[in-house]
Structure formats: C-alpha cells, structure tokens
Amino acid sequence: MAEKLLEIKNLNTSFRIRDDYYAAVDDVSLTVNKNEVLAIVGESGCGKSALAFSIMGLHNRTKMEGEILFKGENIVNISPSKLNKLRGKSMGMIFQDPLTALNPLMIIGDQIGEALLLHNKELSKTKRKEKVIDLLNKVGIPRAEHVYEQFPHELSGGMRQRVVIATAIANEPELLIADEPTTALDVTIQSQILDLIKDLKEDMNSGVVLITHDLGVVAEMADRVAVMYAGQLVEIADVHTLFEEPLHPYTKSLFNSVPNANEEQEKLHVIQGIVPSLQNLPRTGCRFAARIPWIDASQHEEHPELHEVKPGHFVRCSCYKHFHFPEESKEEQHHGIS
C-alpha cells in the first residue's frame, strides 16, 4: 500500500479582488504518495499554480480554507515560523522560469547554501560549501567549483534550472513541487531536466507534484494525473487510464487540441469560448458547460460532484456520459477579402 505523504481535503484558496474573495482553488481534494509523481494539468488560469502555491504557503493576501495534511499535520494557516521550518526542508519547489528565479546579485553557491544554512545552523562554512558542490554535481552541472562562484547571468537557462533544482533538493525534501519546470526550456534540455527530476525522486523516495500544461510531459512523467478546470478538479486517474480512456469533456478536448507528433490531423479541435476569469467563474452548475454548448443543459448535474467511475478514476459532472465532439459544419464560416 502506497504511503500517503500529502493529503489535501476540500481546499479553497481565494484571492481578494476589490472587496470580495474569489476562489482560485475551489474545493480541491487530492493525495500524493511517497515516490509518486502526481501531475496537475490545465491551461493558464485554471488554478494549478494557485494550488501549488497554496501547498507551499507562498500566497499572501489570500484566504485559505480546508486542510492540507503533510504527513498527517495540517499546514493550512500555520504560523510563519512553523511554515519556514517545512519549506525548503521537507518541501522543495522548482519554478517555471529559471531566468528570473535566481537572485541576480548573489553567487550560485550562496543561493544554494542559503537553503542549507536555514535548516542546519550547525553546518560549518566549509562543510556547507562541500555540500553545495556535491549538489551541483548531483544535478549534473560541470565544473561545480567554478560555477559555485558564478552569478546567475553567467549560466545558460538549462544550467540555471539545474541550480534551482539543486536549491529545491538541498535538504532532500519529501515533497517536491515543480511548477512548469521545463516550459521555458528547449526540448533537448527539457528531456534532460525531466530525467533529472525523475532520478532525484527515485533517489530520495519523494512525492512530486508536477504542474504542467504539456500533455507530452505528463505522459513521460506522471504516475497519476489530476485535470483542473476553472479552479476545480474535473478528472483524476492514473496516467495510463487517463491517456487511454479520458472521460471528462475538458480532458478530451485538451487531447484533441494538441498537435500530435505521432498522428496526422488536418484540423485541431478548438475549445469554444475562453477560460473565464476569476471574477466571472460560474459558481453553480458545470463550469465547462458554457464551452460545450451543443451538449444539452439537462445532461449536466446541478451540483456537479466527482464520481468514482472506476477505482481511482474520478470524473466531475455527469455530462461526460453524453459528450461528443461537434459536427464539422458547426465551425465558423469565414469570408475572404474581396
């Protein structure tokens, strides 16, 4: 039986806009086990990064409700000092853009060293430097001693992302959160970084939350997948089930809108309309309904719930049972310039 590392129960994270709170993460419940990669997929504005930030407690001026149990202890709204003992020690985070994630005025060694220093005051300076160089080697940075003294702008994007990863794993965290770790990188660098994350996970037996919009990355990395739309989870399944048998209309639409390197498609599927903004989210009914208007309103649930259709495979709302893609002729007609 897999060992539960992180358990999120009915989490709501709301941002304050003017005088109202709007939930960017809406009633999300999830678990992450040890030595498991859970991918969270969705487009920008679906709340996947907000979820990651909630776990790390990185939001300010937000309201968080519900529970995030990290090894059984609720970490929602705990004191900053308690949170700081967890962050960087038991939980590490990898950010999207390695070009901005490092302090431009600090040498690499000090930036990684800071993560060690903060959680182990006894470590001597020389020991710390040794450890940082070990870490640099571990993440595959050549000439670690030299890089230790360098500033971020002297390194390439791929190298900087390795530095960010080295910082995140400095204290061998049990939970690693990777927020679009390869989006800013070239494809060959991406595959190296993904391999690195996978190997480190195996080494440390950690749980990984991988936030991404790239289904290819999901297919390569994830053990389980959670699909998010408009702040809610719409589908959860293990990776094989999700790729072979996606159920929710949003999941299916995503799959059909990506140009697939293996298949010939003349036309990509276009999801009608746009992702609603936080203030305009429909708070009742099926949130995806507006984007599949050809599906009759009666097919949606009034209060869509996650249903366990098979052990471990959850889908929100009943509309998936009736979903089909629209007829070709429904596409917009265009007129040429005469």
Binding site: N84, R87, K89, G92, F95, T100, E114, T167
Partner: peptide, 17 residues
C-alpha cells in the same frame, strides 16, 4: 514580486531575512 523572492521564501527564509 520577483520570482527569486518566491524562491527565497520556498527555501524557508523568514520574512525579515
């Protein structure tokens, strides 16, 4: 609002640090 500030927080640095 820079990302490296988030990274510093994610390392476990206190607000004053």
């Amino acid at each position: 609002q820079k990302d490296f500030i988030l990274l510093a927080r994610a390392k476990g640095a206190s607000e004053s640090r």
